[in-house]
Design a protein around this nucleic acid. Structure first.
Lengths: 348, 348
DNA sequence: CTGAAAGCGCTTACAG
DNA sequence: CTGAAAGCGCTTACAG
């Protein structure tokens, strides 16, 4: 045997092309790099490019990475891939990064802080050129760690209080305003809020938005009208909605900080024999896949997660090409999607 | 300035540890590799490990990769990250691969064959140690390409007809049998099938399962009782269901090849003023997230996608450590999840 | 405009 | 059991 057909004697590399064309490998390297091509005589560059084409040369990113300390690899940390909110974000990120020749490593951050730190270190060891975090709290240790390690990071769907790094978020307060305005316009006055975790910017800001807009409508927010969920999960939504129903007599509408929470509220209502929107209207947040198919189809605030991912990728790209540039914080305008989980309150 | 605190004068590497301990770098390399440690005197190894620990040494995977041609990187190709079926598969893959020190690059394969080929080449250039494909048709060109390039690949939720490589699938025929048996037991006799694309193993096998079990029950499958969808999408499900309803008078139940297709059928029924399950029962396939929250909650076949991902990763791990080993094809047993989209046919 | 050299940080035959 | 050397495939100051 003289080597199988599928495994050529030696991967074709710079040196090999150099020999074919009769130049030095460094000249080949320059000719093949668009940004250095001007250093090479046009005719030589042409011959090199033609030879590379003909031989099907593919540069070795691993070798380049060892030399340059860059990797054209970007890490994305999400708390839970399985949460449908994140897939379009990831998809948007990978799309624009891919166009620029970057590959995306998606890491499921899972539970603990230690695990997250380990993942970050691992990505750093792989020399990712940047990191996009969808996992971050308002004052996050992991973010601190990344920054200290000199990593370029942008936050997506989350921002940190201190504004230490670039981020793209939906305008969370405005989104909640959309929801409450809609409810108020329908005639609701006793509106409750299922808040997201206050450690997260979304939970914090949407709650602030709720309180602010309620005040603007001169609507009361009595004790018990806001219940905080410990996580963006259906079970927590159910628990919080039950608490709301128990503590706020006469409540006719619930604005939830997130669709999963809203879906949990559906269950709490059903468990008590209450109908939606007949007895209680419900508004979600995010417009997650399939919430148009639940019963009743969920009125919610659309945040454009794919667009968010795309923007985050662009921010990172900008940061990578100009590390000294200003820290940009992009805020996307949410829109209200009215479906059938909201209606006028029942006439008394 | 003498360098920022966050950027030590020089990343600590093998040579540096070697100097500290007073041995040759190659000895350090051996001591730090569990599988080579026996080549080093115990006391020396201990001192090396202690020093590496103290200095916070992290081996450079890029350099190792250049030298060994391995990368501890695995590529995963999915047709569409946004499709909720894939997230738990990806999550399962990343989980078991991560335990073994591998990182996962997820690539959204998108539309065209050319794009997929490009993605595979790119992953190959990054020297992924293996590839897991969730995108593959029964006779797939991309798979052919991977195999020709000498890549180790395992298929997940898909198998190719020729059995050229390892795969893990749900027992698609058995799953469809579960669905049809359930329908038959309820008393349905006029059962239609929305088939998946026949170019995919799932579409092909579920259809075969349907035909076989119908025959076993001595139930007729007249012309028009099977309509093939061109893609696993809701719109296609709606179109196919409409065709079914039009071509099969008296139909009382639909077994869909997939949940999205079943959800499309919901719409077709609603558009005609038909109720589910009152007029027509519907069964899906996959038990995708949230199908328990649609109205009516969908009876479906659960395929255990996370488990599938985990198995696929294990298969790949096995293949990587023993490339000459037999090609294994794992088949997982599906289960039926009965919810409220199925009921006895209306008494005539 | 081009070449020669060094080096990124590892691993692994080869000697001893 | 340990060391010395070579080399994976690139890029980039440095000369000329």
């Amino acid at each position: 045997m003289t080597g199988s057909a599928s495994e050529p004697r030696s991967r074709i590399n710079l040196r090999w092309i150099a020999e074919q064309v009769g130049v030095h490998p460094s000249t080949v390297s320059r000719a093949l790099d668009a940004s250095k091509r001007h250093l090479v005589a046009d005719d030589v560059a042409e011959r090199i490019i033609a030879a590379a084409d003909k031989l099907g040369y593919r540069p070795d990113p691993v070798a380049a990475s060892l030399r340059t300390r860059r990797s054209t690899l970007v890490g994305v940390l999400v708390p839970d891939i399985t949460n449908p909110v994140f897939s379009p974000i990831i998809s948007g990120i990978a799309e624009v990064l891919g166009e620029e020749g970057y590959s995306t490593i998606v890491a499921d951050a899972g539970a603990g802080r230690d695990q997250r730190l380990r993942l970050v270190d691992e990505l750093a060891a792989r020399r990712v050129d940047g990191l996009i975090l969808a996992t971050v709290g308002r004052n996050d240790e992991v973010l601190q760690h990344c920054l200290a390690a000199g990593l370029k990071v942008v936050l997506v769907n989350r921002a940190d209080d201190a504004g230490r790094t670039a981020s793209v978020v939906s305008d969370d307060m405005a989104g909640m305003a959309l929801a409450v305005n809609h409810l108020a316009a329908l005639g609701h006055r006793k509106i409750g809020h299922i808040a997201g975790p206050s450690s997260l910017s979304t939970g914090h800001l949407r709650r602030q938005g709720f309180e602010k807009v309620m005040a603007a409508h001169q609507l009361a927010v009595p004790t018990g009208a806001i219940v905080e969920a410990n996580a963006y999960e259906r079970d927590e939504g159910e628990r919080a909605a039950a608490a709301l129903l128990a503590a706020y007599p006469g409540i006719t509408a619930i604005a939830a900080a997130n669709d999963l929470l809203a879906l949990g509220a559906y269950r709490a209502l059903a468990a008590r024999g209450l109908t939606c929107p007949g007895d209680v209207s419900v508004v979600g947040h995010n417009d997650m896949p399939l919430v148009d198919m639940v019963e009743p189809p969920l009125t919610t605030v659309r945040i454009g997660p794919r667009e968010m991912g795309r923007e985050a990728a662009k921010l990172l790209l900008a940061r990578m090409s100009d590390p000294a540039g200003a820290i940009r914080r992009v805020m996307l305008e949410p829109t209200l999607v009215i479906r059938r989980s909201t209606a006028q309150p029942r006439a008394k």
